[in-house]
Every structure is written in C-alpha cells, then in structure tokens.
Design a binder for these strands. Sequence first.
RNA 1: GCGCGCAUAGCUCAGUUGGUUAGAGCGCUGCAUUCACAUUGCAGAGGUCUCUGGUUCGAAUCCAGAUGCGCGCACCA
Length: 741
Amino acid sequence: MNKELSSQYDSKQIEDNIYKLWEESGYFNPDNLPARHKKPFTIIMPPPNANGSLHIGHALFVTLEDIMIRYQRMQGRKALWLPGADHAGFETQVVYNKKLEKEGRSFWDMPREQLYNEIKDFTLANKKYMEGQLKKLGASCDWSREKFTLDESIKEVVNETFEKLYNDGLVYRAEKPVNWCTKHQTTLSDLEIKYEERADKLYYIKYKLANSEEYIEVATTRPETIPADIAIAVHPKSKWAKYIGKKVVNPLTKKEIPVLSDMAVDLNFGTGALKITPFHDAVDFAVWQNHKSEIDIQPFSVINQYGKMTEEAGPEMAGMKVKEAREKSVELLRPNFVKEPEDYKHQVSVCYKCGTIIEPRIMMQWFIRMTEKPHAQNQKSKIKNQNVEKSLRDLAVDAVKSKKIKFIPARFEKIFMHWMKNLHDWNISRQIVWGIQIPAWYCQDMANETCKKNNGVIVSVKNPEKCPHCGSANLKQETDVFDTWFSSGQWPYATLMTTKPGDFEKYYPTDVMETGWDILFFWVARMIMFGLYRTGKIPFKDVYLHGLVRDKERQKMSKSKNNVINPLEVAEVYGTDAVRMALIVGNTAGNDPIISEDKIRGYRNFATKIWNASRFVLMNYRTIDAKPKLTAKDKKNLKDLETAKKKIAKYLDKYDFNHAAETAYHYFWHTFADKVIEESKPRIRPENENLADAAAAQETLIKILEESMKFLHPFMPFITEQIYQILPTTKEKSLLMVEEW
RNA sequence: GCGCGCAUAGCUCAGUUGGUUAGAGCGCUGCAUUCACAUUGCAGAGGUCUCUGGUUCGAAUCCAGAUGCGCGCACCA
C-alpha cells in the first residue's frame, strides 16, 4: 500500500486535506475533545488587524501559539485557542485613507456613515481573507468561538467597562493638552507619537518692560506662537527675578503680560526665562494652571486644527502654515533679537504613522486616570468593584511584582515597570469614524441642576433616549470613538464573556499571552490593568514576547524595502511545516528572528528527510511471523528516544521552543535516520533468516517513527499527521493531533 | 536626561544555577554515491568567547570599569 509513496514530500497536495481532516474532527473546539482532556489550557490569539493580509510576523505568532496549543492538547489539556480579528481603528482608517487617495477620492468629503460602511466592508473582506491564511498556516484554533472587536457583544462589554470607569471616577472629560495630528485630524495617545531629531533654530527674543529699555531675554524655538503668549515665567533664582510681578510687552501684539515666578523653569537651559503659551505647549499649560490668579488674560490658540495660523495670530500671519508663519514671525521680531538665532537640534514629536509634527493643542477629550484610586464603591456600577483600593497602575504593578504574571524573557519585567512608573492619564477619544463610538450623550436642554453639574454628560451602555436628570429627549451622542487599545485591552475577558455560557468561568484566567514586545505597553499593560479592574483576576499567567522578524541584513521587513517575505507564498513553495521550523529554530524569546529563504529551504530539506525516512520504514514493513527479540542496541535506541522526547518536553514546558525544535530536528535526522535506520538495514531485509531479530528491528523502527511524529507534531503538524495516518500501527480514524504525547 | 539590552566560528545565533578538548544551522574543503533521500552520506578546517581589572582552586558564564552597537521611555523652551 505504501510502496507508491513518491520520493518527494509534496506539501501542496496534502496540507489542505489534513487541515480539513482536523477541522472536521471538531477537536479544535475543546468541548469536543475526548474525556482524557480535562484541565483547560487557554490562549487568546492576539487579534490581527483586519486591514491587510498576514505577513511573516503573523506567521511567527501563529507558529508559537500553535506549538503551545498542540503540545498541551497532546498532553491531555482541554486546549482552547480563541481566534479573532481587530478592527484596528486609527490604523485601519489610515490604510483606508491611503487607498482612497490612490483612487483619487477624498476621504474628508465623505459622509461619516458612508465612510464607516466602506471601511467596514473593507475590514470584513480582509478578515475573511486572513482566516483562510491562518488555516494555511495550520492554526488549530477554535473557529466556533471566533470574535471580532466590533461584534455587538464585545462592544457591550467594552461599554460596560467604560461606564464602570466613569462611575468610579476613573474616566473624565476635560480640556487638556493633547497630541494632535494635523494630517489625520485626530488626537493620539502618548504611545502613538514618536520622537524625531530635527535641526531647528533657537531664537533669543527681548521682552521689554513697559515703557522701559530693560528687557527679559527669552529663548524659544517657536516664535510663531508668540501672539498667544500670556505671560513670562522666570526661575526665582535667575537674573530676571527682579522683574517678577512686573509686566513686559509682547513683542508681536504689544499687549502687556505679567512676569511670573515658577520653579518649572530650568535655570540651566536657555535664558532662565520661559514664554507661557498654554494652548500650544503642555508645560506652559501646567504653569498657567498654577498661576491662573496672577494672569488676567485668557489663553487662546493661534494655530487651528489644520496647522494654520488663526486671526488671533495677527493680520501678517493669519492663514499661513506654521512653517511660513515662523519665517514671518522671525522677520517681524528681528528688531527684538538679542542675538542671531542658534542652530539647535532637538527631539520633536511626530505622528507615528505619517511623521507629521504633532501640534500640542488644548481640547475637550475623554481621559482615563491611570494613577489614582477609584472612588469608593459607586452605587451606580452594576459590576462590582473588586479593586477599589488600587489605581489601575498599581493593580498591574502589584500583579507583576508578586509574580502572578510572569514575563518571558524576564527582562521585560523591568521595562514594564519603568513604563508604569512614568504613566500619565490616557486620552482615549479619537476624532475618527472607524471604531466604537463612545457611549456618552450630551443633554442639550440641561434643564436641571444635576444636568448642569455633569455638564449635560450622560454615560450609558445603551442609548438612554431621555436625559435621566431632566427628562429631555434632546440628546446628542458623542461622535468620538475609543482608542482601539481601549477595546482590545479588554480582549481576554470580553471574548470569553461572550462566547459560550460558562466559558469565562472555565477558561479565564488564560494561561499564556503570546505577542510581540512592540505592543507591551499598547496592549499587554492595558490588558493586565483592565483585566484586574473588571474581573478582579489576572487575564493571563505568563506573557511570552516574541521579536520582530527581520531579513538577512537585519532590516525590518517592509514593502518599501522590497524585502517582505509573504509567509503564504513561501509556504506554497517549501511547505508550511518548513516555514514554521524556520521561524522557530534559532529564535529565542524577545529577540528579533532573522529569516531568509535559505533557512526555509533548509527545513524543507528536513521535511523531505522525514518523508523519506518514513517511506523507508513503510516500504520495508511486512508481517513477520516471529516474536521480536530486542537486542541491547534496540533497547538503547528506545532509551535514547525517550531521553530525546523528555528533553523536548522539558524545553517546551520552559517556552524554549528553539531548543525543543532543534532537539527534535537533531534527534530525528542525526540519530534516527543516520544511525538507527542505517544500522537496521541488514536486519530488516528478507535475507535476514533470524526472524525474531528482523521483527525486533522493525518494531524498534516503527516505534521510534511513531513517537517521532508525536514530538515533531507541534512544530510540523502537516507532514507528521500525514505520516501518522499511513502508519500500519495507526488505528482507524485516530488523529495524531489528539494522540497522547 | 532616565532606563533596558547586546558583543562567542566567515554569516545567523545557542551556551539554564561558574567545572574536562566552547556547540548548532548555513557557508567552506575533501571524499563517497545504482542503496529511503544529491532536497544525500562520511570526514574535516575554522574561535586569544570585545578589552581591562576583580572574586574564585577554577570565569564565555559572577562583579566593576572601558569601548563599540542596538533599543525603550522622556512636557528642557
């Protein structure tokens, strides 16, 4: 029967069939696993952004998680791998914006609803395509529990958390400095901006005292914002201290502005005097907040949301872009220069997507308090608050400190703590259309005192229809949507609370969160905080962080560099199993793996080796009418097998996939194929008249082959399942996937 | 500025609590081949483990410093 096996392993011919075999068995769903599978083992898949197709980085996470799931399933765990997809709000909107630009359509002129629906169609199409890709990669996840971040059930959980945070005083709406991207017309969180070094000029400007030639010297990189200066702050120990309490003249508007004393001014930088422009700088905003009583001018903006100068900037600059206005202001200010401007290199914040310089603005936005305790149990909260005594930050910090949550590799614990220490309140509102609209309504009548006290704000999981305070039906919903990470940060419990009844109780807390280190703060930290806040339990026990896949030259893969490896394309050529091995061997947790086609080719050769070794054993297989008499060497070989298998299990238990895979590879090729098989050749030939010996050799070979398929299965599921299916010892309808390890 | 890493064979990396001649893959050299597999086998060359000092009977491994490189965080105008 097996004699017609071809000498080459043809992955294309078998992979789809094998996946179908697994899928039809129903075993991806842990509920269907045989009775021996008892204790749950859960991994929630990091939902890929449904705005493109899977790249090699996705293949890495799929492989790592599938290895864990398959291994644990074989070990008798009730293994659940819950798949999903992320609408990826801002990122997807950026992608769609680009797409429209290419098509010559204007993103900004489209009605909100139309835009939303178009992006929705686009996202759902991508999602469907990605599901097919996950299957190609061999992902043994439970499709019956698949979730999408915009499922109604998920939105409800997310909104409930928001309402609870609001009632607990951890969500607030305020006018505060935020990061504004003038291209994308939205605010961004502190994590969504990056810093770039820019060569600018530092201008030294005289602010003269009223009716005097005396002046204070102020250094600034942004002379165009001078019309919005409402004060000058000096350090009390600076040489300008004698002017504290006096007034100076704004060199552009000629208005008189007060001189304040503030320790926030750095004595050792610039001139020891700082111009205070609250609406265009966060530090200045803070200074203004502390000196409100001393300043009679209300702060205002001179730059609008498009990065253009407003009327308040004065007739010479109004309407100009910031860059032009800077040149203009320099021209106007020249008489007030103390000296020629100096070249100055500094870090400026830019949008992490488009690189546009972030314009700090003061805007009414929604924020989450990260470092303060919630109010005492609020009656309004339907969800009990298990953790009233701690801030979101402390919940996470304590869980990590006490080792309830462990990082692999451990060094990320320090990085995590460092970030947590510097945590600020999180702006969660975005002025984009693609996302979950914030469940807040504004009463337009504000006909009673409670309304006024709350500024007309009503936070409610579902549309309240009427103002609960004054009964007005004249409500307007907030148009801003949540930062994507606000919803994905709730993913572990939001999914399990809404799949099947009992799932949350059974599968939460999950066992492992496996994801890239680049989203440690974006995602992992938020999941820990929200998980503890909302459920009182950690969302996962271990966090395994993988690196970013790079090419041979250590470059990050990107379309523009033309070094992208499409996992599906290479899997088509070399087989999925080869791609999976190439991603695992030589790759340790937290390090950026380097992947090249050569490496993948190497593991395709390994697949061929597995195929031919198996083929050899099967081709020579015959019924021998004798009781096998194992030699000492046979016994040693079987013992070596056990040793290798134990070693692999030990490595897998420690998340050391690299060594586990290498050990499996090495044992199979250089011990089994090169030695055991070679030595067995004369013994299994029909010429061997010692039937007991022939039977012993054959039994040893079959046994090792069968066991090898088991320990190779998590890494190379397709070829191993295929061979298992044709082994003479395999029982009808049994699957390697659920075999006992 | 604060913080986290890395430095081992030509290349990419392992090296788990310090303990004989420091490992793997790829690459390289030589030989073999009608045999399950040339997508192969066997053999081999190749390393002062960045430098300096310290701890120790003993250091690639622990400590301190230097040099080089990478990265994260950050409201110095």
